[in-house]
Design a binder for these strands. Structure first.
Lengths: 161, 161
DNA sequence: TGGCCAATGCTACACTATAACAAAGTTCCC
DNA sequence: GGGAACTTTGTTATAGTGTAGCATTGGCCA
């Protein structure tokens, strides 16, 4: 699963380095606030997940991590991913068994994802109205919703053009 | 993963045998219409998936299938599951890596699922308004939606009571 | 009767994820 | 500063999910 350096963005070329820096800074700040540790290992994993706007598999993270961290093993990666998810810094894309940096880090939340099956770029969109509609639908069925998984696959605007 | 005979329904006790029979009859009719083969193997797998209203893992299907079909292997099961999904008779629940009988077999479609994390019962609900809202949201992002995964986990009405 | 196609058999393997226990590092209190 | 409690990481092994690739069978029909 080679994920090249080019074509990393969801919509157009942009300064992706700034994306990564934003994500890392936000994570550092939030961890400080919360009194939890963004250890070098965890930070490195977060950086790897943020290398592109495409969901990345745990074993791809492991391969990349192992270059700087020879002792890395599957549990190393999964523990870091679990931490990052618990803090709301990344999401798991269930339909791909892969992980994606969260653009709205802060409150842990369920996102809504648009996944391009051609280029792999995945966009997280926030749509309060839609979220409310989902909660409505649950409530109507007498169901206490706790977690939402909403993943839409198809062709992104760039690939369609 | 013991899935008992009791407590099989999403909402209340009901004649689950009728559920299964309905599903099998519908599948037989549709396959005849479409000129595809609902072989004994595929029918058996469909029946196993329909044993309850809880999503069932592929390897649980395999265990059950092997009782009557000694040569069954993972590919046996996955091929049958793929066929049944392609024909719209079952759904895959991505967040559980498990499969569930479709209550609205016929047109292949993406469902919306309410998954109880306590009893496992999973209800498929149809909500055209919500589906339209999801399509709207995609379109607004210039995205051509092809497949939807919508899975809501929480506590069902029965378990809450 | 031979060629084609769909379905199944079968072996092996790839990919995803966790259990369980050991070791090292951190915090905080006295 | 010593040490208990806790968090994080190391390490080995294994469980769980899914597919590749080729062989075999059986029906259809030209």
């Amino acid at each position: 699963m080679a994920r090249g350096a080019a074509q990393q963005t969801a919509h157009h070329t942009h300064n992706h380095k700034a994306c990564i820096e934003d994500a890392l800074t936000t994570a550092r700040d939030l961890c400080a606030e919360r009194g939890v540790q963004l250890t070098p290992l965890r930070e490195k994993v977060l950086q790897i997940v943020w290398k592109s706007h495409k969901p990345v598999g745990a074993y791809d993270v492991l391969d990349e991590l192992a270059r700087s961290h020879k002792s890395a093993r599957p549990p190393t990666v999964y523990r870091a991913l679990d931490f990052l998810m618990a803090e709301g810094f990344i999401h798991k894309i269930e339909s791909l068994n892969a992980y994606l940096g969260c653009v709205e880090a802060g409150a842990p939340h369920s996102g809504l994802f648009l996944i391009c099956r051609k280029c792999g770029a995945t966009e997280e969109i926030a749509d309060p109205k839609l979220e409310a509609a989902l909660d409505q639908a649950s409530k109507r069925a007498g169901f206490q919703a706790e977690r939402r998984v909403v993943e839409i696959s198809g062709i992104c605007a760039q690939c369609a053009a």
